[in-house]
Amino acid sequence: MEPVEPDASAPLRVLLVEDDDADAVLVTEHFTDADLAVDLQRAESLADAEAALHDPEAVDCVLLDLALPDAHGFEGLRRLLYTDGPAVLVLTGLRDEQLGADAVGVGAQDYLVKDLVDGPSLARAVRYAVERRRSDRVRRALRDARLRADENARLERGLLPTPLIEDPEMRVLARYEPGTEQTLLGGDFYDVVEGSDGTLHAVIGDVCGHGPDEAALGVSLRIAWRTLVLSGIDPDRVLPTMHELLVHERNQPTLFTTLATATVEPGRERMTLRLAGHPPPALVGEGQDTSMLSTERLGLPLGVGEGVSWTPLEVELPKKWALLLYTDGLIEGRQVSGDVLWTDGLLDLLREVTAGPAPWRDDPGTMLDAVMERVRSLSTARPDDVAAVLLVSDK
């Protein structure tokens, strides 16, 4: 939760948890004597206090009497120590000073001895407790942000690797953008490697859901794919093996992954495409020469069904071809009209972007950036991540 900047001019919102009427009146008089602006509420029991704190953000500080009719010892204190809630100051009797000190060890910001406190000391203790609590929350938020950033960086290095190719006539350009409605890295992943015989292998996939579990599964699948194709396994066994891996590694039985693989022969004239519930790649040409590959042999996502197989689609490649693989975040953004871009809209957009007067092949990175920007401009909301890989053959 992001810390909220307090309004310095607003009165402090104080909840007094005290069952003794005389002590409650005395606390009110102390605040008046100290000339401290407070919005004071009172709860006469722990149950009333918990009801008043149904929204912990609505109170800045709790003054808690340890001797309540429905709480014993530190029970009440522990129940009111919300992670992102108000500061808690303990009120004790003169003979309970050690008890108050022990309460600080449990988590109270400070303790006050009822018979020794006056207006100035009460006001000072409340101000200090509130500021310490706010400082603690800011430090915790910064620490959590650093931890999330470090975790995302580790996951991103696994999900978005450096392509492993040696062919000087092949160019690989990749882009990744997180979704606009989530902060954690999702499960989109891609990879491109070249086998020892010159065969080019590419994969792009999307683990359903967002968060570290999905991202970690995406890393595992990407590494498994790279290992399988570089080991020279029969291409028809790659997806079934990854399906089995996903089924055994996922932490939820309904988790699945869409995926597209492309295997390009060493001569770069033929390609074998396999789709596991994934949108089809596009062959990018000049303007109207751009086309979306067929989905007639679209198979089930990994993790869905048993004994599934994925029928390959053989594609003849033109001279100097380019192939765009992408995850569905690129085509599922909601537009102003309420429609989604989908594959037809992406095809129109690609034809528009590649129809410029200057050949886009001279600077394919700029073309890919223009596609990503046009998708952003057309989408009012794009909750999913986007990964896109452009393979450009100069043969």
Rank of each mutant, 00 (worst) to 15 (best):
R132S: 12
R148T: 07
R374K: 11
V353C: 07
L81W: 08
A49G: 14
P11F: 01
L350F: 11
L228D: 02
V247T: 14
L230M: 14
E296D: 13
L66I: 13
D21W: 07
H278S: 08
L15I: 11
S45P: 04
P69M: 07
L185E: 04
R133W: 10
R79H: 05
Y176W: 13
G329E: 00
E2Q: 14
N152F: 03
R250C: 08
K114H: 03
R351Y: 01
P69F: 07
G105K: 11
L283H: 06
R270E: 15
L68K: 12
D385A: 10
P240S: 09
K395I: 00
A215I: 03
A202P: 05
S196G: 12
I223S: 14
L159V: 10
V192A: 02
D144T: 09
Q182F: 00
D115L: 06
S9D: 15
R148H: 07
K319A: 15
A24R: 06
E151G: 14
Y128A: 11
D60G: 13
H243I: 03
K114D: 06
L16K: 08
A51V: 10
D289S: 15
S121A: 12
H243W: 01
K320M: 09
V193A: 13
L46K: 02
L160D: 05
D363W: 09
L147F: 10
G267R: 14
E29I: 03
P266V: 02
D394A: 15
L173S: 09
L245E: 07
R132E: 12
L159H: 01
V207N: 05
A381R: 13
E50C: 12
H278D: 04
N251D: 15
E5K: 10
H30G: 04
G205Q: 04
M242R: 02
V238F: 06
T92W: 01
V371P: 00
L259Q: 02
P86C: 05
V106A: 08
A67R: 15
S379G: 04
L217W: 13
E131A: 15
I204M: 14
E169L: 11
E2I: 10
G158Y: 09
